[in-house]
Design a protein around this nucleic acid. Structure first.
Lengths: 259, 259
DNA sequence: ATGCCTTTGTGAACGCGTGCACAAAGATGG
DNA sequence: CCATCTTTGTGCACGCGTTCACAAAGGCAT
């Protein structure tokens, strides 16, 4: 998943639908859409859950937050559920999106089919490089950063995607916010600071890989990861290895520094 | 965050470090690396936390799982902490990675600098399209899918990245797993099924946007999202609107179906 | 040394999310 | 109309994650 989890803590459980449930609704929607295309009329929580990769109790509880849309003994009406979830997610309306930073990633995003298919429409592509201006990417001409405010305003864009290098991200973010955008999907490896009321989700490719590496390391060597090859850089300023030099609660954390 | 949250439930808190903490370590590492480059010797939990976009109590607790690496009254030694976190995440070793599916996204990933900088090395690029074979992307020649098993084996690859269309993802996944890969980063919008012991993380661009749209919709109209424009597709098979037609716990869920 | 000041490390409380397990609801067949 | 069988909807308990708040630890000045 995208690593973006900087969301309003808890109180903001918008209208009582838990954040965790909201995050799963698109998953259900995708599975339901597939069923719909195969003209399957109804589906049980068990079937749908396995298609979406969750367990059925969780799915039923999730749906219970939306209302009672199932029929006991039968299951859920596929078409009806597709409609309800789409509506809940706000996908029955049109969402113009602007993508800033048309490098490799920005171009990939512009070409990504999953956007258009769900009510998202790429309203504009923006890049700071003048030599890109006018060049068509995914059938849309790239516009210069100078046009940013105008583009957002003219198209009523409320969602912005940042695919710039890290260095430019905060600046772009500020301009997007100033132009009136209230939701940002950030692919740049930076922490963005935004005013209250602006939502930011982060997708960080390198972080995902690092998390995988962590688990991979654990799977590979259950032995101590061999401490002598790389010399630890200068010990911390003073004697800071307090307890835990002995075996703590789980006595296998290698006590690296010899105190 | 990438939406990939299909992780081993709870018991698998590898070696006692909570999953949530692991997911934040790369964040801390990035902030620390920046400090290191500016030759800042020490940093307090407060400063580092704000740089990483979390609160300081959380950061201290996270670090406490790794051991006692701070000095009271002073803070944390930047270099030392960089080393400890890197080691914990397994970034002191080399991780060869193979990317399958060299479309727009795959190419973007191959060019992504964040990989190489953290011990990840793109060992090979694989694509099913023969016309791509041999063509260099990011300085590496694309190889045909036929070579997949050989490439994985020869390079000792344990992490695979899937950037193919949804239709091909499961098949590619199966081959990767059969070839010996135990960690997969999946960009294709599909639920992958893998055997026990294989880790999958999912990054789904369209899901992130849908979550943003949900919150955006809530921010925009706190009024009922106007029910008459789109006719709901045929009511569920039978009388299924049970309770909740009246005002439930939070009496503002629009009772869509008139029973 | 001694006392003050800063900052860590963590015990404890709380809240969200998950999963179990079952009663209620409805379909279906006789 | 009644009995049976399937599947939903949810009450409940449990565990992880977050946050508060404070005691302990160490630096530093005097």
């Amino acid at each position: 998943m995208a690593t973006g989890r900087n969301h309003r803590p808890a109180t903001t459980r918008s209208r009582g639908i838990p954040e965790a449930t909201v995050a799963r609704l698109p998953l259900y929607l995708r599975a339901l859409t597939a069923l719909s295309e195969r003209s399957v009329p109804t589906v049980s929580s068990e079937e749908l859950a396995s298609a979406a990769g969750v367990n059925s109790a969780k799915l039923r509880k999730d749906f219970s937050y939306l209302g009672s849309y199932g029929t006991r003994g039968v299951g859920y009406d596929v078409e009806y559920l597709v409609y309800q979830i789409s509506r809940e997610l706000g996908l029955t309306q049109d969402w113009p999106v602007v993508i800033v930073g048309i490098g490799n990633l920005g171009a990939a995003l512009a070409n990504y089919g999953g956007f258009a298919s769900r009510g998202f429409r790429v309203a504009a592509l923006i890049d700071a490089d003048p030599s890109l201006s006018g060049k068509p990417v995914a059938g849309i001409g790239v516009q210069h950063t100078d046009e940013l405010e105008k583009v957002v305003d003219d198209n009523g864009v409320s969602i912005g995607v940042i695919a710039t290098p890290a260095g430019a991200a905060q600046q772009v973010c500020d301009r997007l916010v100033a132009a009136g955008i209230t939701s940002i999907l950030n692919f740049a490896p930076t922490v963005l600071s935004v005013p209250e009321g602006v939502d930011v989700r982060k997708v960080d490719l390198s972080i995902e890989l690092q998390i995988l590496a962590f688990h991979e390391q654990r799977k590979a060597g259950e032995d101590v990861p061999d401490e002598e090859d790389t010399a630890p850089p200068a010990a911390p300023p003073a004697a800071s290895v307090t307890k835990r030099t002995d075996s703590g609660p789980d006595g296998d954390l290698p006590a690296v520094m010899p105190a």
